[in-house]
Simulated assay, not measured.
Amino acid sequence: MKLAVYNVENLFDRAKAMNLASWDEGRPVLEKFAELNQLLGEIDYTPADKSRMVALMRELGLEKSDTGPFVILRRNRGGLLRRPRPGGIVIEANGRADWVGSLELRYEPVNEHAMRNTARVMIDIQADVLGVVEAESRPVLSAFNTEILPALGGEAFRHVMLIDGNDERGIDVGLMSRDGYPIGTMRSHVDDRLPNGQPVFSRDCPEFEVTTPSGNRLLVLVNHLKSKGYGGMAASNAKRKAQAERIAQIYKSLIDNGETNVAIIGDFNDTPASAPLAPLLDETDLKDIFEHPAFDDGGWPGTYGLCNASNKIDYILLSPGLFDRVQSGGVFRKGMWPGSRPRRWDAYAEVKRPADAGSDHAALWAEIDI
């Protein structure tokens, strides 16, 4: 069985703020969006809340219209605000119950070459079980599977599953598997909470039960942990550490209940020696596929960007029972921008510039005798 994981960075559509030339341009927009969304969700609006809402709406381009360059304010019923003729914004609602609507990100199509190169990676790694990170939704993932993969000469996966998570940007995690590898019981952790009542997982930590043709059972947990680039560093590290601690608890519970074949895969947004990932990497018996003697890193230690050691952020972690059955493994980078001076690896001919890359992430794979 070949197990793989790939951060596809959206398939058809991506939030406009995430499609800007650099993360430094998009991050302020996403942070203001998150802050305004939180304020709009408060039960009661204080004068300070209203003042801050107005400031954020102006910064997001909503002063004259409910449609800004990166966000849309949908007002279905009730009176959230008014815009006087002289200009400006006045918040009239006194709390969330006074109006019906939502604040949403605006989306735009993904670069066509990038979309096709994403599909080429999914085809060429020839995975039996593929964990997918940053997919918009199950209908989108299913459509990509049945429409785009066959159009490029690939075979569609037999099973496609994705559970909507906590992220409002349409970047969820899911699983795809071939005929003979049915997805059985699924368990979501979308409602796991921190002591302060906030969700543990930025997206989710779904457990997927997969049965192999030989009748063995495999549990795959797909993850996308808190990024470093969105929010303050201390808060981001604390969130990522809490997520790693919870995943470790889930894993230990599975092992205590007799499970032996467990894989935890995904984009963890941090390096192996980082303190936030220590509860998962140092305090469990999980093994990183990079540590297996039969694993080939392709000459570069990382999995993101130009694949330096500081960009080793994608993982396939295996329980000892699975790790001992690994026959081979590797990093698939043909869909990534290889750099230009010099080109670091062979890429698809269609990857002529960074925007054409299927993803900034490599796909990881492991061939396991199970």
Rank of each mutant, 00 (worst) to 15 (best):
I183G: 02
D164K: 13
L11G: 12
D369A: 12
H361R: 00
A347W: 00
G79M: 08
A48M: 10
E259G: 09
G298L: 07
V110G: 08
D172F: 08
F268P: 00
D346N: 04
P47A: 07
I247T: 12
G79H: 06
G197M: 02
S340G: 01
D267W: 02
V326A: 13
N196C: 01
A17W: 05
D256K: 15
S137R: 14
E155Q: 15
V71K: 02
K50M: 07
Q249I: 04
D49M: 14
R96Q: 12
W23Y: 08
R343Q: 15
F332E: 05
A347F: 00
S137P: 12
V351H: 00
N196Q: 01
R341D: 11
G305C: 02
M57K: 04
A235W: 03
A119M: 10
P354F: 06
M176Q: 10
R96C: 09
G298V: 07
G180P: 01
F157V: 06
I289R: 06
I255W: 12
G197L: 06
N94L: 14
D296S: 14
A119F: 09
A347L: 02
V90Y: 03
K252H: 14
I171M: 15
P86N: 11
D314E: 05
N76M: 15
E367A: 08
N7I: 02
Y348M: 04
A363H: 00
E168T: 11
F290Q: 09
L3A: 09
A273P: 03
W23L: 13
N37T: 06
L130G: 04
A127R: 06
D24L: 03
V200Q: 01
S340C: 01
A349F: 04
R52W: 03
P139Y: 11
G165R: 10
F323K: 09
S319C: 14
V90A: 08
P150F: 10
K50W: 04
L322F: 11
R82M: 05
P276I: 08
L219R: 14
L218D: 03
P47V: 06
F201D: 03
N308R: 11
D346S: 06
G79C: 02
Q249G: 02
V129K: 08
E350T: 15
I43R: 15
E59H: 05
A234W: 02
W337L: 01
